[in-house]
Write a protein that binds this DNA or RNA. Structure first.
Lengths: 225, 225
DNA sequence: ATATTGCAAATTGGATCCAAAAAACACAAG
DNA sequence: CTTGTGTTTTTTGGATCCAATTTGCAATAT
């Protein structure tokens, strides 16, 4: 048997790279909602033909991150306040449950790593990094649940609303409250109190949602002035 | 302004048709797990080139219904018992909540339609139709929740395990119990007892899962005989 | 007989080309 | 100045073609 790269790790196809790059850019808000994604433009950015770009866009549409109209191209999906609220409501149902499952078997090492992310989140000065650190903190706690399907669902839901969440974090008091709530969640995890950790997570998500919705309702008046 | 078909409804692209056809065939179990899906073969079936087929396969992979390996093609995803259990556990978390939300505003008309599906399910002699009727019954009750994101998630989860569920239905006593449980759920809905309807739905899903897993554990011994 | 190597066929991933539709634009009429 | 119409340009959806990789098979050596 010859040993080459494909034996070690399956080489990522071009569309995988494009998909991941666009997915992250959309989730982070680097590409604003409503912005059109031209196949040709993206193809040139990655030095490929339009074929892998179309595959990436297809996958993004399946994930709900872009909306495509026939012969009109893809635009970054924009969510109504109602849709945003629904995704948060969904997260508030799933994530506490996953954390509960996770705590039943969580190791001290995992807790220590989560604590590291929480501290990095709390002390990071660059607000552009808050979103990633927030995600890492929660994910680290969820991973121990060993529920790949749940985690995938959570990731998809968070991808949809992450750019709004990041906007909420930089609001006054948004970051302060997140810091405190992370600490409380972590304490409950360390105490192996699944019930309390779940309830705190639920409140954490719903609180962020409320704060975000209030913010959006005062700023979003594009139609009907 | 000229009026033509595209004004009335956006014409479905070729890949939409292929995607829906394959998705249903996989969910229903008409294409067995592990079966390879040759691009060329499917393309000829639909009288198109491989391009729209590849788009459909890409979307199916994003939905988790097929698994693709680079240069090796796509195969219908096969789930381990653990993975099946996780999807059912997920459904048992989501669906009761959606039903609870739905009951808060459900109309008598919707209940009548759901009753119609339940009766059709209970009296249908052709076992091949049980799966669809089962789905329609539950969906009709969920729709009134007006939660498109939840519904989409439920559909994706059910697509993954529907073929197993259909196999479980035709097991002895599987159909009998489903009939009774549907009636109980319907009664609770008619009484607008969201709490009871949710708990019955949860038991309905978990019961089917247990029955299915027992069945699979006795029949599935392909490795290590 | 079995394992190994080399070649041919089959299959996928990607590039290029073409047709269909939409958007942008120019221009005439009211 | 606005509105409507015809034309050009842009962009997407799909077909065809080519390269990269895998798979099947045959020939050979042990």
């Amino acid at each position: 048997m010859k040993i080459n790269a494909t034996n070690i790790a399956q080489m990522a196809s071009a569309s995988d790279v494009i998909f991941d790059a666009l997915r992250e850019a959309i989730a982070r808000g680097d590409i604003g909602e409503g912005q059109v994604l031209r196949q040709d433009h993206i193809a040139r950015m990655f030095n490929v033909s339009r074929i892998p770009v179309r595959e990436a866009l297809t996958r993004l549409e399946e994930q709900g991150l872009v909306a495509t109209q026939r012969y009109r191209g893809a635009v970054v999906a924009s969510l109504s306040i109602e849709e945003i609220r629904e995704v948060f409501e969904f997260r508030a149902l799933i994530e506490p449950e996953v954390l509960r499952l996770s705590i039943a078997r969580i190791s001290d090492d995992a807790l220590a790593e989560a604590r590291g992310f929480a501290e990095a989140f709390a002390t990071e000065a660059n607000s552009a990094k808050w979103g990633d650190l927030n995600r890492q903190f929660h994910y680290r706690l969820y991973e121990e649940a060993r529920r790949p399907y749940y985690l995938q669902t959570i990731r998809a839901a968070l991808d949809r609303v992450d750019r709004y969440l990041r906007a909420q974090l930089v609001l006054t008091s948004g970051m302060d409250r997140a810091r405190q709530e992370h600490q409380q969640i972590l304490d409950a995890c360390i105490a192996r109190d699944g019930e309390r950790a779940a309830e705190l997570t639920r409140a954490h998500i719903l609180g962020a949602c409320d704060s975000l919705v209030r913010f959006l309702e005062t700023t979003r008046r594009p139609v009907g002035a």
